[in-house]
């Protein structure tokens, strides 16, 4: 973990309200798939807090990494204005990341992403494929204009798309694709909205399941107790996990979601 001024290499819109930002900095050396960075989008008070954004791809040879974000509120809108050559104050990499080592060579991994939960799965897919693991990707979006990275995933994995309104791919949710296409595998990794993660946790598409969670954050490093969740075995007790530093990735059944 370090705090670094990373230089903008490129920052462009890749789908409706979705931006892809590539930055260069030495913190790339430490990055793993599923980790996130805490981004200070403005040097002043508006807005004040950092924004957590997942690492979408890592290019160690160029000391570059890419994040993909949805332009939503004040913070991400300002981020969308960053021009190549400008510097962005980044704290990272943070969190634990997806356990690539849990997938064994020759096995099949299912990657399930929803909306802005798709980005961290991309670097994960790259690393799994490189290790000799078969990857099946199912991505869910609101509608056709929100779809991104389909062809990138399709380069090295069997890729399915679901849209809520049916304007592209299968109509419905990622879980509809999983069920109707009868998809199964040895390990499943997922990131996306909480209802989607709950649905995945409740079914049994693979014996091993890892989920990446989202929570509002303060520090992002484990000091402020803003992002805490209960553990599954003790849902009303005082045992806890911090999404920022114990997560954001948890084994299904580890925490109460």
């Amino acid at each position: 973990m370090k705090k670094e001024l990373c230089q903008v290499v490129s920052n462009q819109s890749i789908a409706d309200s979705i931006y892809e930002l590539t930055l260069s900095g030495s913190m790339v050396e430490e990055m793993k798939p599923g980790q996130f960075v805490h981004v200070k989008v403005s040097s002043g008070l508006d807005p004040m807090l950092r924004r957590p954004i997942s690492i979408a791809s890592i290019h160690k040879e160029k000391s570059e990494f890419t994040i993909i974000y949805r332009k939503q509120g004040r913070g991400t809108s300002l981020l969308a204005e960053k021009k190549p050559g400008e510097f962005v104050d980044i704290l990272g990499p943070l969190g634990n990341g997806f356990p690539v080592e849990e997938a064994s060579v020759g096995s099949t991994a299912i990657l399930v992403g929803g909306g802005i939960g798709v980005p961290p799965l991309y670097e994960l897919a790259k690393q799994l494929v490189k290790k000799g693991i078969k990857v099946i990707t199912i991505l869910g979006f609101q509608n056709e204009s929100a779809v991104f990275y389909e062809s990138k995933f399709a380069e090295f994995s069997e890729t399915y798309i679901a849209t809520v309104d049916g304007s592209y791919g299968t109509k419905g949710f990622v879980t509809d694709v999983l069920s109707t296409k009868n998809i199964g595998g040895d390990i499943l990794y997922s990131c996306g909205p909480t209802p989607m993660l709950r649905a995945i946790e409740a079914s049994s598409y693979a014996p091993k399941v890892y989920l990446s969670l989202e929570e509002r954050m303060g520090c992002g490093i484990g000091a402020c107790f803003a992002c805490v969740c209960h553990v599954k075995d003790d849902p009303d007790g005082h045992a806890y996990k911090k999404v920022c530093s114990d997560g954001p990735v948890f084994r299904a059944g580890e925490v109460a979601i």
């Binding site: 008070l45 004040m48 929570e215 509002r216 402020c224 803003a226 969740c229 005082h238």
Partner: peptide
């Protein structure tokens, strides 16, 4: 005794500040 604290969301941003209910 150990305390879990409040349910999340526990933080919200405000102009030039933040609210917390840890």
């Amino acid at each position: 005794e150990p305390r879990f604290g409040n349910p999340t969301p526990r933080v919200a941003e405000t102009p030039g500040g933040m609210l917390n209910a840890i």
